[in-house]
Design a protein around this nucleic acid. Structure first.
Lengths: 184, 184
DNA sequence: ATTGCCTATGCAACTCGTTGCATAGCAGGA
DNA sequence: TCCTGCTATGCAACGAGTTGCATAGGCAAT
């Protein structure tokens, strides 16, 4: 139930409409918190009713009008509360790990293309992170608080992708060895 | 929608009742796929109706009777299909990352205890993994296919925890630096 | 001219997952 | 003796999240 808080952070960084938020959730914020436009619209209406965000109608020319939201004081207070709460059971869903264990009851070689596909995806994401780091943080010695915190999250993403790539190489080597041992 | 598949893997490794499965999902399998007993019972009934698993009533003495499930041929076939499918949009929910970015709009120092709690949790989990590795894989040169695959998943868990610990240290150093820069 | 895509918001129906509660016998400790 | 906890299964209700569809104007390409 932290979608509200992710939206608040995004609106504090930059006010925007539901549609704009949905696009952010497809890109930057979406790296660590996903949401569809449906969820976002529904939650925004609830947050507006609770006074967490304020909306302003913006009439546009040549395209539909939009409601631009920004974080209200009550929203900041709610975020502050949330920050101080312990929480997080963190439900884990690591489908590839299940598949790897499942491969023991099938042909391990059948999983190799899938793992290779994953590897490509993670390599591409790492490249994107590194490119984004160059672009958004050119001078690491002159960062404000917000940039420092954004950068430490980005470093986490980079390290996660590096570790994942190394592990996927390990998985591939293991699968290939098993496929060679007992070719089906 | 891979709970079915996680259950199938668990039942292939060892048949068991819904209750036993629920306990496994609190321990081993639950490291990469969580589920409550409610979900498991419901899905088991559906899987039995679909012929994916077979159930056998076991009357017990001194404790309630139970239904022991085991994977059926149709279940193995479904698992095999699933293994060959690309899939995985992988919805991400990294609450701590949201909190770190949120800290920029509050007091960064307020987050330190939370991050320290996380660090402890991950350190304990790493210790548990390493202990389990010693116990379950004493001789790494004499593993069968199933153990090889279980071990490569465990290696992934170990590397993930090591990476996470290093990153959390980085986060703590950053938060402490920011807290020192502008003490609130 | 038509097709398809983009902005912008929303309804309705559904599935997935969680929470609280109920039953029911047995074992162990205060 | 009462209370707690374990085994074992399940119902009912709710909330979170997904999917399909609808509207509606403007833009660009075929």
């Amino acid at each position: 139930m932290a979608l509200e808080h992710a939206i608040l952070v995004s609106l504090l960084e930059q006010p925007g409409s539901g549609y704009e938020l949905a696009r952010r959730f497809d890109r930057s914020i979406g790296r660590f918190w996903t949401a569809t436009h449906q969820q976002i619209y529904r939650v925004l209406r609830r947050m507006e009713a609770d006074g967490w965000v304020a909306a302003q109608e913006v009439t546009q020319d040549g395209r539909p009008d939009k409601k631009v939201y920004s974080a209200a004081d009550a929203g900041r207070a709610a975020l502050s509360d949330w920050l101080r709460q312990p929480v997080e059971p963190e439900t884990v869903r690591h489908e590839l790990a299940v598949k790897i264990r499942a491969a023991a009851f099938d042909d391990p070689a059948a999983l190799i293309p899938e793992v290779e596909r994953h590897r490509e995806g993670h390599a591409a994401l790492l490249a994107r992170y590194l490119h984004g780091e160059q672009r958004d943080f050119p001078d690491l010695d002159a960062l404000g608080t917000r940039q420092e915190l954004q950068h430490v999250v980005l470093r986490g993403g980079i390290e996660f992708e590096r570790m994942t790539l190394a592990w996927l190489d390990d998985v591939l080597a293991t699968l290939r060895r098993l496929a060679g041992d007992r070719p089906s």
